[in-house]
Amino acid sequence: MALVDDRSMTTGRVEWTGGSASVGDYFELLKPRVMSLVIFTALTGMVLAPGGVHPLIGFVGLLAIAVGAGASGALNMWYDADIDRVMSRTARRPVPDGRISASAALQFGVVLSVLSVMVLGVAVNWVAGSLLAFTIFFYVVVYTMGLKRRTPQNIVIGGAAGAFPPMIGWAAVTGAVSVESIVLFLIIFMWTPPHFWALALVKSDDYARAGVPMMPVVAGPGSTRRQIVLYSVLLAPIGVLPTLLGFAGLAYGAVAAVLGVVFLALAVQVARITEGPAARTAAMRLFFFSILYLFALFAVLLVEHLAVLHLAGA
């Protein structure tokens, strides 16, 4: 029991080293940066979906999706505390740092998971609620517990968890899954491997020390660089699909095409520059650009759609 394990005896009374977590520490368990991307892509899915939803119900839906994503982040930090502890990027997280106990992180994650799915199901609809439940299950059980420590394809398959939010947002409005929402899913799904592998190329020592079989650790940097290019080749045209399928306009299509070409060019640079600090710079450039790429694509989708609605209403 944590209360007994964490104490250190003093004369007469007992000091307890636990209980020092702040509200901010618990908020950190929710992976707020990941959560912000989830909110943004889910909102885009909601806005693009045909039909409409009452603003309050839409807000509750978005809140539930965000909390569900945060809950899966907390469960990931509970399970991965041992490997987070040995990686420089993650050693300061609340559980490996000792600010929150593993059991508290588990309880926090489970309670928020159940609550977010129930709220989304009851207040919005059960298609969206079921998708959120599946996303949490996929991220925690399939990715974190199953794939992450076993295969270099971990983030390829596990990337699906991060790709579901726009589909959940779409389902929150329509009560169904459609081709359009699958395309939004595919954009994030194809974006995930080059995004994470660019970072993994730079942080491969960290992953190797933690025993996580990331692609650069298992297949080597050469193979990883080739696969980054391969996924970038697939991603660029998928990025333009919303325009080709008619649920986004030409402005989006132009932005997606240009950014897709830049993405590919940066990926080729990563493949060509393999030695020294320049190789690291190329990888980090692709990593940061990939964040901008995804943000820009969904921002343009959102703004363009709102502009069209505004003009149609004017």
Binding site: L3, R7, R13, V14, W16, S20, V23
Partner: peptide, 23 residues
């Protein structure tokens, strides 16, 4: 109970209070 012997520091009490308010 073991817990009755535990004496929280002022910092732990402050953190517990903010957590309770947040909940």
């Amino acid at each position: 109970d073991d817990r009755d012997l535990i004496e929280l520091t002022p910092e732990q009490k402050r953190k517990r209070r903010t957590r309770s308010i947040a909940i």
